[in-house]
Each structure stands twice: as structure tokens, then as C-alpha cells.
């Protein structure tokens, strides 16, 4: 496999994980515009553990995911008090607070960034990406996913039939933060250099964009979105300079004609039947 395709595939895998982190939180009805913050936390923790503490990458990623997950839970509790755009604004603020913290974090380079990580293979990135994707898809067939759908739809009614909305919403924040941290750790070891600017508002927007375009009601939508965001500019070379504008326009068009995004349950069922016929 050429370097070129390996690079593209790695980008897709990392974006897929980042998008899944948004998807998991969105499934409970909470839109986060700050997941780049969790990515940044994961990237810096993983890099410190491999470079300074000499741990193997897999161990480092697991530790980073756990720490970030705990931070996600800590963010999730106050987030319960906020809904809709207020939650979006608060998470946007969280992302900026993390980026700003990293800028001041002199021990790991501050604005100069941090390096020394060993490059990881595309296969390694995709092992993580596929594992997490499959895990999320399995959970989508589980009882807890029904609870998640119930909480997203009508939190009060869900509580009155015995569902613990707090546990579900905070848990989703924790899981989303953990997955974002894995994406961040892989990002750091793919690019072997990180700086606070890698985890800015624009990164958070990319993650949300992938989910909204690919499909916000099924996990495979994150995959479709990640593929679209990375591949389309490669094939539409004439768009090179205008690809962001194209994505912005695509986002608006998608919201206008197909709010749930490219993939949804009905389309997947249709495709599944078609493939068996």
C-alpha cells in the first residue's frame, strides 16, 4: 500500500473514532461542540505515557481513555442542567478551555507543541476504529440502546417508566470522551507531533460535520461521514480550494432535504434486503 493511501486511510480511521465520540453523546440528545477538547486530552496523555513513561501505545491509549472518560463524566454531570444551544455553547467553551490549558502547559511544550512519538501503522489505527465501531453497533442492538432512545425522546416519560436518565446521559458523556481520547492518542501517534491548535473549535466542528452528514441516527453514519469528509476532496480535485465551502453547503443541503443524514435505519434495512434478494 502506498504512503498516499495509507495516509488517507489513517485519516479516515481517526476521524471515524472522533465522529463516533460525538455520535454516542448525541444519541442521548446532547450535542457537544467540544469533543476536540477530549481528543486533546487523550492526545497529550497518550503521548506523555509513550514518550516520557515509555509505556506501550495500547496501554497508554487505554489509560488515556479511562482518564478522559472520567473527565467526561465530570463534565456530564453539570451538563445535565443545560439543553440544546446552551449545552452546545458550554461544550464549545469546554473545548476552548482545554485548548487554552494546553497552550499554557509548558511541561509539554505549550504553544510549541510536543513530539517524540513513534509512528503507528494504518492497520493499528483501523484495529481500534473497527473495534469501537463494532462495539457501538452491538450496543445498538442491546436493551440499553432502547433506554438511550427513550431518554433522548422524552426524558420525563423515560424516568417515569423506571429509566435513570442521569446515568444514561452522564454515561454517554463518559463513553464519548473515552472514544475521543483514543482518537486523539492515535492522531498524536499518526502525525508524531501535536500542538494545542490541533484540538481547536474547527476540529470539534469536523467531528460534528461527519456525524450530521453521514447519518446521526445510526453508528455506521459516522463511518459514512468520515469517508465523505476525507475522500471527497481527494476525488473532487477541482474543488481543492473550495472543499470547506463545499462541505458547508453540503451540510446545509443535508439539513434541508435529509435531516437525519445520509444513512438511517430505513436505508440500511432497504440495502440489506436488496443485497439478499
Amino acid at each position: 500500500m502506498s504512503m498516499y493511501y495509507a495516509g488517507i486511510l489513517s485519516d479516515i480511521g481517526i476521524l471515524l473514532l472522533g465522529a463516533l465520540s460525538v455520535y454516542i453523546i448525541l444519541a442521548t440528545g446532547q450535542l457537544s461542540l467540544g469533543n476536540a477538547g477530549f481528543m486533546g486530552i487523550g492526545a497529550y496523555i497518550t503521548s506523555w505515557l509513550t514518550v516520557e513513561a515509555g509505556l506501550p501505545i495500547t496501554v497508554a491509549l487505554v489509560i488515556a481513555a479511562l482518564v478522559s472518560g472520567a473527565i467526561g463524566v465530570a463534565v456530564g454531570f453539570p451538563a445535565l442542567r443545560l439543553k440544546g444551544i446552551y449545552l452546545a455553547m458550554a461544550t464549545l467553551g469546554f473545548g476552548e478551555v482545554v485548548r487554552s490549558f494546553l497552550l499554557n502547559f509548558a511541561a509539554m511544550g505549550g504553544p510549541e507543541g510536543f513530539h517524540g512519538m513513534h509512528h503507528i501503522s494504518t492497520g493499528y489505527i483501523w484495529t481500534w476504529a473497527v473495534s469501537v465501531l463494532v462495539l457501538v453497533m452491538l450496543i445498538e442492538a442491546s436493551p440499553i440502546w432502547l433506554e438511550i432512545r427513550a431518554v433522548r425522546d422524552d426524558e420525563t416519560a423515560a424516568g417515569l417508566v423506571g429509566l435513570n436518565a442521569t446515568e444514561i446521559k452522564v454515561g454517554a458523556f463518559g463513553c464519548g470522551a473515552a472514544v475521543a481520547a483514543i482518537a486523539g492518542g492515535l492522531f498524536a501517534h499518526h502525525h508524531v507531533y501535536i500542538e494545542p491548535g490541533n484540538f481547536s473549535f474547527e476540529r470539534s466542528v469536523d467531528l460534528v460535520l461527519a456525524v450530521i452528514l453521514g447519518g446521526s441516527t445510526v453508528a455506521s453514519g459516522a463511518l459514512a461521514g468520515a469517508v465523505m469528509l476525507v475522500i471527497l476532496p481527494e476525488y473532487l480535485r477541482f474543488l481543492a480550494e473550495w472543499r470547506f465551502a463545499a462541505f458547508g453547503a453540503l451540510l446545509i443541503a443535508m439539513l434541508l432535504v435529509r435531516r437525519q443524514g445520509l444513512l438511517d435505519r430505513a436505508l440500511l434495512r432497504f440495502a440489506w434486503r436488496g443485497s439478499r434478494a
Partner: peptide, 8 residues
């Protein structure tokens, strides 16, 4: 989100 599209 649609105004986010415009900002992009």
C-alpha cells in the same frame, strides 16, 4: 448547525 454551515 445550518448557520455553522454558513460560517464554514
Amino acid at each position: 448547525l445550518s448557520t455553522l454551515g454558513f460560517s464554514i
